[in-house]
Computed example of a mutant assay.
Amino acid sequence: MPPQGQPPQHNPYAQPTMPSVPLGGYGPVGTPPGAPPTGSGGGGKGWLWGLGGAVVASAVWAGALFATGGFDGEAKADLAGYRYMTNLCNPTDAQPIEDSGYRQKNDSGSTSDQHSSSESPTLDTMTCNIDFEPSDAVSNDYSSVWLYTSASLHKKTNPEPEFEAQYRAYENQETSSYSYKVSPVGGLGDEAYVVRQQTKSGSTTGAYVILGVRDGWMTYQSTWSEYVSSSSSTKAKTPDEATEMLKKSAKATLEKMKE
């Protein structure tokens, strides 16, 4: 206690009774840009100004979390307008393939296609497989031609970070007979890649091409697989020719998947 009649002495080491509010990146603790100085006569005004700024910043941050679903720990799925369908063969556009000299194989009078689908709260998947044959093929020609398409609606996980890597991985799958070339493709979705199998023998009896497309949280893939015997009267498409067919088919198919 100070002697009677003397004012209490200020202790320079005393802890403040009112905690300051740190606002990282704003200079002195509790002092946002443009805040008035906290000199004599200011008392707690600087602290109150900083606290007000923190409240406003917190409100903005909270609003952003509500808008993006951050409070749920999940971002809202961007399905880009695509919808689930039980038969992916319906929107699959085969016109570019038929225009290139192929026809769908028929089995007992019905088109030879196979499809499957699965719907769940986290992931919807759809597939379609269509068998083709060259339009000018004769009875003793042997050929195996099919178009396989698949689509997935990712409802909980954004496929973007891993999408390109899935296709780039083909570049490491090389054998003594073939290798793969991976190239980006423009004009389809947010990103797209084509994988071309290249035979080292220079054979023209077949083509194997994969086209992958990501549009938002929707992923789509179409695969062209063709083999014709060396004695066949028909010739297989080159990988470049097959790529153009897949690009045209994918563009039309994706548009139909939004209707």
Rank of each mutant, 00 (worst) to 15 (best):
K247M: 09
V55I: 15
S117E: 08
S117Q: 03
A80E: 13
G43L: 03
W47Y: 13
T223S: 04
G24V: 14
F163Y: 06
A165R: 10
Y142N: 14
M218A: 07
G30R: 11
G206E: 07
F71D: 01
M126V: 06
D72R: 12
G42R: 14
G27M: 11
D215I: 06
Q166F: 02
Y84S: 04
Q198V: 15
M1W: 06
Y180L: 10
G109P: 10
S232T: 00
Q173H: 11
E98D: 05
E226R: 10
T204Q: 13
W49Q: 09
A54H: 02
G43T: 02
T219W: 08
P32D: 01
L153W: 00
N140H: 06
M126L: 04
A250C: 04
P8Q: 11
M85F: 00
G70Y: 13
P2G: 01
N11T: 05
E160G: 03
T127W: 12
V138M: 05
R83A: 14
A242I: 07
S135Y: 04
P36G: 05
S108D: 11
Q114S: 12
Y142M: 14
D136A: 09
T111R: 14
D113L: 15
V195T: 09
S117M: 10
S150W: 10
F132K: 00
C89N: 03
G5V: 10
D113I: 15
S183R: 08
G53M: 12
W49T: 12
T243I: 08
A236M: 00
N87G: 08
S176D: 10
G24T: 13
G189A: 09
E244Q: 13
K251V: 14
M126H: 02
G27I: 14
A62M: 08
K76A: 05
G81D: 07
E244L: 03
A165W: 13
F66V: 15
L65F: 04
Y220R: 04
G43M: 02
A252N: 12
W224Y: 11
D190C: 02
P19T: 01
Q173S: 10
E160M: 10
R103L: 08
P121G: 10
V194M: 11
S249M: 06
